[in-house]
């Protein structure tokens, strides 16, 4: 257990602290604050105007849909992959564990390109066949969901896997010895043990999904009211000299992501307190 150690703060310590504060204020805090003041420069007018615009409401709805579906998919697969990586032995396991981090290292534009090359309706590998069955992926909602799921794929795994490793298998074995089946042990023992990690993962996935821009831009086609997401709307409004509108949507999206971080922050602080209580 890492004990809190107070550093005798020499002049160097104070200098370092000052540097860090100034750096973070200039890079993140101040610009973020300016977006808030820009948004409310004319009161709540620009925010209200947003909800009167049916195209924008459709864009927000699409963003929410894609984010929720991608998060559900990534949660189920994330927990599944984590269980496989921690509990099972199979050939290619190390490769899989290296590959699951890949989406973090690939440019969103490349993600979009990759999906178009396989699922593009005109000359993708599978696209024409799928379209002949009446299932359009690229330039439609499924493509947006796939792009969103791709970029946020590792987040649940990165949170859940280490916790699963740490929890070990003893509690599950105890449940089995008391008569619980594999499923019962999973629902009653394993899932509660990884609950908080899973929730962090879900919240981070949600934040990342809502904000995805590059990959979605490539696969969406940006059709007003149909395949335009909220992040695409920010770009478009700004480029069309609707700065107030752009700042208002940006404010909305930023609030959601800051809220997500806050949730994770509070949960983490909570579990950290709990953990240190356990250590005594």
């Amino acid at each position: 257990m890492a004990e809190v150690r107070r550093v005798r703060n020499g002049p160097f310590g104070y200098l370092l602290r000052a540097f860090v504060i100034v750096y973070l204020v200039l890079l993140v805090a101040w610009p973020l604050l300016l977006v808030v003041t820009h948004t409310f420069a004319h009161g709540t007018e620009s925010l209200q105007a947003l909800f009167a615009d049916p195209d924008l409401v459709a864009a927000l709805r699409l963003t929410a849909l894609a984010a929720v579906v991608a998060t559900v998919i990534n949660t189920v697969f994330g927990v599944g992959i984590s269980l496989l990586l921690v509990r099972c032995e199979f050939p290619g396991k190390r490769l899989l564990s290296a590959f699951v981090d890949l989406p973090l290292a690939v440019s969103p534009i490349v993600v979009g390109l990759a999906l178009v090359l396989v699922y593009g309706g005109r000359d993708g590998w599978f696209g024409p066949t799928l379209e002949s069955w009446g299932f359009q992926v690229v330039f439609a909602t499924p493509g947006i969901i796939m792009a969103t799921a791709f970029v946020s794929l590792p987040l649940v795994i990165r949170e859940v896997e280490p916790v699963l490793r740490e929890v070990g298998t003893e509690q599950e074995q105890a449940a089995w010895s008391l008569g619980a089946s594999g499923w019962q042990a999973f629902w009653r023992v394993t899932l509660p043990a990884i609950k908080w990690a899973m929730i962090y993962g879900v919240v981070l996935t949600l934040a990342r999904s809502i904000g995805e821009f590059g990959a979605v831009k490539v696969v969406s086609g940006n059709v007003l009211g149909e395949t335009r997401t909220a992040t695409l709307a920010v770009e478009e409004k700004y480029l069309n000299f609707d700065q107030d509108g752009a700042y208002a949507v940006a404010f909305l999206l930023a609030s959601v992501s800051v809220l997500c971080i806050l949730v994770v922050f509070v949960l983490r602080a909570r579990s950290a307190r709990r953990f240190s209580a356990e250590g005594q």
Partner: peptide, 21 residues
């Protein structure tokens, strides 16, 4: 027979307490 069906009581070295219960 699977462990579930043997009707044994097993006490683990590190107790394996269900921490959330």
């Amino acid at each position: 027979l699977a462990v579930q069906k043997r009707n044994v009581g097993f006490v683990f070295q590190h107790y394996a307490a269900f921490k959330h219960m």
